[in-house]
């Protein structure tokens, strides 16, 4: 997470079939090929049988095309794009629990929330939960600013990203339906 600024980050997005074990295949591939994963997020798309995996890979020594080719070898991976090669937007979300047991702390947090795309989403007797959604660099800057106040707990989603403009990453494919009417896609989220 705290890799030096000089290292080269690649953002790769993969559309995968929503079948059991697919995430395991993706993660196993990275470990096997000695690719260093900074963050990895996965979630459903608007199509129930397709999930989207976004990976940030620390790759000063790695060729992102090489990684994409390896990913594409997985049978359940439908499409791979190196998002960071083109214009794109990216977002990282963090929830930060901070100490707000005195007025000064609370004021500092409130003030930071004005200056950053952040807001207080839960106010307890002595602590508050702050949410920030922004580019990774901005999220990290914000966290640095909160440190003097007193961070108690932190959780981050990892980066999600999307190419800008009309370029889309999608697939036309429809899921396999067996002879008994069952489909290969499982009901629940199952990567």
């Amino acid at each position: 997470m705290n890799a030096p600024q000089s290292s080269k980050k690649h953002i790769i997005a993969a559309l995968v079939e929503n079948k059991p074990g697919v995430l395991n295949r993706v993660v196993s591939l990275f470990r096997r090929r000695n690719f260093n994963v900074d963050s990895l997020t996965v979630g459903r798309t608007h199509k129930a049988h397709i999930s989207r995996v976004t990976m940030v890979i620390d790759g000063a020594r790695l060729n992102p095309r090489q990684m994409a080719a390896n990913l594409y070898k997985l049978v359940n991976v439908v499409d791979v794009k190196v998002i960071s090669e083109g214009l794109h937007v990216e977002r990282d979300l963090a929830l930060v629990k901070v100490r707000t047991d005195d007025v000064e702390s609370y004021n500092t947090v409130a003030e930071l929330c004005e200056r950053y795309p952040a807001r207080i989403i839960d106010m307890g007797p002595e602590v508050a939960i702050v949410e920030i959604t922004a580019r990774t660099e901005l999220v990290e800057e914000f966290i640095e600013k909160l440190k003097p106040v007193g961070i108690i707990e932190i959780v981050r989603t990892g980066v999600i990203a999307m190419g800008r403009g009309k370029r889309i990453q999608d697939t036309e494919y429809e899921p396999q339906v067996f002879e008994n009417g069952q489909t290969a896609t499982v009901e629940r989220f199952s990567v």
Binding site: P20, G21, N24, R25, S28, R32, V75, Q176, F178, E179, N180, Q182, A184
Partner: peptide
Amino acid sequence: TGVTLPVTKHNYLVMSAAEIPYVVHEAFYI
């Protein structure tokens, strides 16, 4: 399927008899 993941091109855990023809045909093709 977990143990053989890195040493197979692909693998399957078949969870119903109805899937078998699809899985076998895919397996031979792959």
